[in-house]
Design a protein around this nucleic acid. Structure first.
Lengths: 167, 167
DNA sequence: TACAGATCATATGTCTTTCAGATTATCTAT
DNA sequence: ATAGATAATCTGAAAGACATATGATCTGTA
């Protein structure tokens, strides 16, 4: 099997394989991630939210939910557990008192840093199925594709909020 | 600390981005696919099952369920709807009368052929965010990675059954 | 100012989906 | 022939997602 891919198989052999491959990889990734975030209240989603809060400073819960495709009603009680765990705080936005900005506590920042190492290890493990250069290539391609998908569907993520960090 | 491997950005900037990218692409894919399989009883999963039945001739429901990560109890009534729709039949395996081999009817084959065009179009659309060569490369890399993930976790898919087609 | 409509977070109830356990029939091995 | 394991099915309980309704607030308009 050579890896020159130009001519022979531009599309996977069977329609649907792309989805199967994506799902397979994502499933393996999530399984490892579940172990990696053990101890975090709220599980994987807590990690996602915490990471989002710290790395993209989104202005409202709604923006976070849209970014992660988490329903607002679900996000409410997910944040409850995170506030209880003292990872984040709900700060009323002075500019818009309906909205609450979610900010990480000092402990939240520390906790995220600790778990990011483990998640990074998970990614390394998953990508370990490919050689270094290919892994990097896949990451890059996937990132570009995700960006295009994200752009193609503004409904999934309100770009206003993300835009500032999107490039 | 140690994640600087070879190139400037082999790993996404933030741990978790890989998962976010995967989820984003998969979500976009599935959304399009849901429209594409409109009219198929049982939705996307029906397509998956039908495709699996026809392309990989697995010996039992259990093998199908493992391959697609569908719970056996769920598969039972999913197959019910497909049998009702005359897409597949449950054929008692003469070699093992506990097991039922799921075979597609002539109509099932025809229906799948029809929908495969639409799903292929979906994949083309999704991959349209990349240029041709890159799309092919991504497909190839993803396939290899999925294979490695699949092999790393024998629990998710009983390899006996799939092995013959897994090349 | 006053009002209407829209928006953010939350609370509540419904509804689908998932999952564990028990059941029946069958296979395998001793 | 008997015991234990396995394939499919059935049942009920638990979890999760989703739509809807509510209270507070913002925006625009007259």
């Amino acid at each position: 099997m050579t890896s020159d891919v130009t001519a022979p198989a531009p599309t996977p052999a069977v329609p649907g394989d792309l989805g199967w491959n994506l799902a397979m990889v994502l499933r393996g990734y999530q399984r490892l991630q579940e172990d990696a975030v053990d101890g975090l209240p709220g599980g994987v989603r807590c990690y996602h939210v915490l990471s989002t809060v710290i790395h993209h400073e989104l202005p409202s819960q709604q923006a976070i939910g849209a970014h992660l495709a988490i329903d607002r009603t679900v996000l409410t009680y997910l944040l409850d557990t995170m506030v209880t765990a003292a990872l984040v705080e709900r700060v009323p936005d002075p500019a818009d008192r309906r909205a609450r900005k979610i900010v990480a506590t000092a402990e939240g920042v520390a906790v995220l840093a600790r778990y990011e190492e483990r998640v990074a290890a998970v990614e390394t493990t998953i990508l370990g199925g490919l050689e270094g250069v290919d892994a990097a290539r896949l990451g890059s391609l996937l990132g570009r594709l995700a960006g295009s998908v994200h752009r193609a569907d503004p409904a999934a993520s309100p770009c206003e909020a993300v835009e500032s960090l999107d490039r």
